[in-house]
Design a protein around this nucleic acid. Structure first.
Lengths: 100, 100
DNA sequence: TTGATAGTTCGTATATAATCGAACTATAGG
DNA sequence: CCTATAGTTCGATTATATACGAACTATCAA
């Protein structure tokens, strides 16, 4: 694995983004990235198996929500905030702003 | 069927709402209700079987997004706009405002 | 009361998604 | 070169969703 492909936000549908956000594990990841700014996969796993997390990060990347950069042995994730905000204005604000 | 139970929005999670909105058929229903204000099930079916539509309306109701009132032989649906806006501020604006 | 209309419920088939162990790949450090 | 670490990929299992025909229920109108 040299590096990841990240889709152009123009190619991401709102359905795709909503689906990615509708899973509790992934929503938790997104919330943590929103606070933390950048984090490795391991830092966000909450005790779940690596293969499960790998699956969820893949879904988040394919929905254009998360960017993953390889930094040595770690894969560092960030929210694609600006791009997502441009493509889906107000969506992340709404989702992240909810009283839980 | 005398009438429907509609959940209190306080009992609806954001995950549940996002999941309900992530299906293209249901998103289409929500868009149409947003424009039309109120519509029967049949008016929104786009040629799909009644049993399929019944399923999707049930999901939308259980996510607190749609209210259904029985009017004679028809079941009239509306978006629960105000309540959803109070529970998930900005969510419907974001979802309905997207460039398709 | 008969028939038409609108929608539900049930059952089943099929598709999609989540979970996670095991084997694998890549990088860093000793 | 060896080992540990971080994460991926594969494959199998299980869970959850979707799709939709068929039979049913409720209402209205003739």
């Amino acid at each position: 694995m040299r590096n990841y492909a990240h889709p152009d936000l123009a190619d991401v549908t709102i359905e795709h983004a909503l689906h990615a956000l509708s899973d509790p594990v992934r929503l938790d990841i997104v919330r943590q990235l929103d606070r933390a700014g950048e984090a490795s996969c391991a830092a966000l796993d909450g005790g779940r198996p690596k293969s499960s997390m790998s699956h969820h990060f893949r879904v988040l990347r394919s929905a254009g929500l998360v960017h993953t950069r390889i930094a040595g042995v770690q894969h560092m994730n960030t929210l694609r905030r600006e791009e997502v905000d441009k493509r889906f204005p107000g969506l992340l604000d709404a989702v992240l702003g909810v009283e839980v």
